[in-house]
Design a protein around this nucleic acid. Sequence first.
DNA 1: ACCTGAACACCGTTCAAGT
DNA 2: ACCTGAACACCGTTCAAGT
Lengths: 234, 234
Amino acid sequence: VSEKKAAKRTQKGVSRRERPSKPGLSREGIVDTALDLLASGGMSGLSLRKVAAELDTGAASLYVYVANLRELYALMLDRAVGEVAIPDETGGDWRERLSFLLVSYTRCLLSRSGMGRLAVTTMSSGTNMLRLAEAIAALLQQGGVVSPRMTLAAMDTLLLHASAIAAEQDAWRDWGNPLGAMEQALKDSSPEQFPHLQKLGEALAKESEERGADRLRESLEMLIDGVLQANVRA
Amino acid sequence: VSEKKAAKRTQKGVSRRERPSKPGLSREGIVDTALDLLASGGMSGLSLRKVAAELDTGAASLYVYVANLRELYALMLDRAVGEVAIPDETGGDWRERLSFLLVSYTRCLLSRSGMGRLAVTTMSSGTNMLRLAEAIAALLQQGGVVSPRMTLAAMDTLLLHASAIAAEQDAWRDWGNPLGAMEQALKDSSPEQFPHLQKLGEALAKESEERGADRLRESLEMLIDGVLQANVRA
DNA sequence: ACCTGAACACCGTTCAAGT
DNA sequence: ACCTGAACACCGTTCAAGT
């Protein structure tokens, strides 16, 4: 038993990533390790016990730095959000910048598998999330959204939707494209039962391949249009 | 050991819900029980083992009817979607009907705690989901969305967003309103760091109470506007 | 103050054995 | 074919004991 453990400890000093060999535990290090695990093994490869193992300690030790799993999730999310690129004045008009910002946010979530689902499940009120919210609020104001009520609604809706897109894509990666299953189900059903869906069949097949960066931008632009419309109407 | 089990079995015939006392296992019964557990205990009260226990059997027995936990989730989602009210021609013009349909969908998810998160994580291609998709496709066509590509994008976006709203509300129920935490974080930060957010502070406080049926409808209307705009533009 | 092993109360899933 | 107990390989969290 202790032999195996010793071997691991030795191995670690040599090859485990580029983390310093034993900096003592820290909140930072725990979040780092958790993000590494998420990136390499997805949500199912992440657990407090595995984070602890990676840090050569027991799971109980982490509770000095992190209240529970949910707090760890929130910290991970906030760290990911820290990588969002916030465009400056050179980034075009407010709308281009807002679109860019939201795409960047979604990309940050998508870069680690599982982050999308995490974002839609977890709430962070860390500095990075506030920074992002602040940037969106500023851009919306430039876009003529002035009432606080409308601004809040728009911020919430935009961020929620961007997160949802990431979560959806996440689910696809794990389970394979569900459109396949849907096509199958359609073929199995009588044609007269779902006439509109049947007609959509071929387009559906093409869609499977194409759903890339364009779809992401397009979906977000759609939402921005909706925000503008609601603002005009109010 | 066997004494405790016998007591449970006895108790069951008397009082356990109104399910017939022992209909033998079935896919239907398993999904029913799972939904009951979800409604009464949320996502954390739901597990294969608990479903099995409720049915007076071992977890292994369920695998005859359900491939795994994920399939059970998908079946649960489809059953919930079966309760969505699909409006007929008396329900106003296409837009009113679409809005009504999406609100109804979201409400079905919200009626069991945990369903929102489940919807954003799970993909169902069951009959009820197809029925819902068919209805949306039909309404969009009436609204002048004709290209298959646009129809698919709109369907996906609308359903995704409705699910995301439910998931968000779900998260609020479990963890308490996160706007509270955000307000706190804002108070703790220097005012000049997040000027726009600071200004939003009071509106934020009011929003906490009001986020009800109006917000839901409003958010969905916003999206429909976006869809229309994209359709006009294409 | 920080760290730890062991324990507690759970999970989903598999499998050999029964009926 | 269906059901089952037991086992396997995990979980998050707590706690008394160590340093």
